[in-house]
């Protein structure tokens, strides 16, 4: 029970700080909106319809915007060495991982709520599809798990802003590819059998990185 209270405390604290400063979400929103507008104008020059490009653009934006949030999330723990305050608490280290990863996922999903209608307008493609929404939730949660793990590793290095994308993007490539295929499948109303196995890749990524996070976070954060 205390474990979940500690997870909730970290989640609540991160949300409180973000609600007050809006540092991560402002950066994420500005990036996402600018990227959508730029993709819209840049891609329109060579293609007649932007609709086939929607899944790829959506996931590139979510991954890049999510990375901005991950960087800020760990930076707040480095200020005043607050991470030591967390480590002094008598809690399972995985509670810190879960609390921060859930917070990161919620921030990125909040950005997805802004990105989806904007893309519907500019790219003429509605995202209001249960399958797409499910894929976004699974993909973002999986990415946040991997991202929180890598952001913690990068946080203790001097060039953390550089290390985070360098380490995270290659790792997240299978997730992004699978999520794009699944999103395309749902948007194009293809039979589920044609792309269902890719949804399995998304779920597998999520399970692997959340399991790795809960098991390995102690060694990463105390290294």
């Amino acid at each position: 029970m205390l474990y979940f209270r500690q997870v909730l405390a970290i989640l609540r604290k991160d949300a409180q700080i973000e609600f007050r400063t809006r540092e991560a979400t402002t950066a994420m929103i500005v990036f996402a909106v600018m990227a959508i507008v730029m993709f819209n104008f840049a891609l329109r020059l060579r293609v007649d319809s932007l609709r086939p490009l929607v899944p790829g653009v959506l996931w590139v934006i979510l991954v890049f915007a999510g990375t901005l949030g991950l960087g800020r999330s760990m930076a707040s723990e480095q200020t005043n060495q607050c991470i030591d305050g967390l480590l002094l608490a008598p809690c399972d280290r995985s509670a810190i991982f879960v609390g921060k990863a859930v917070a990161n996922a919620l921030f990125t999903l909040a950005i997805a709520l802004i990105v989806a209608p904007l893309m519907a307008i500019l790219f003429d493609e509605s995202m209001l599809h249960t399958g797409v929404l499910l894929t976004v939730v699974l993909g973002v949660v999986g990415y946040s798990g991997a991202g929180t793990l890598i952001a913690t590793m990068a946080a203790s290095t001097r060039a953390r802003e550089v290390f985070l994308p360098i380490l995270l993007f290659p790792l997240a490539l299978p997730l992004v590819v699978a999520a794009v295929v699944v999103t395309s499948g749902f948007l194009d109303r293809l039979p589920f059998e044609q792309f269902g196995s890719w949804l399995g890749v998304v779920v597998a990524f999520l399970v692997i990185f959340w399991t790795a996070g809960t098991l390995l976070y102690e060694f990463i954060v105390e290294a």
């Binding site: 707040s76 005043n80 607050c82 305050g85 608490a89």
Partner: peptide, 20 residues
């Protein structure tokens, strides 16, 4: 080891929760 964007009260409340 305190969060600058939380109040003094909120900082203590957070750590109280972490210590159960």
């Amino acid at each position: 080891l305190l969060y600058p964007d939380l109040t003094g009260y909120e900082n203590l409340l957070f750590y109280a929760r972490m210590y159960g």
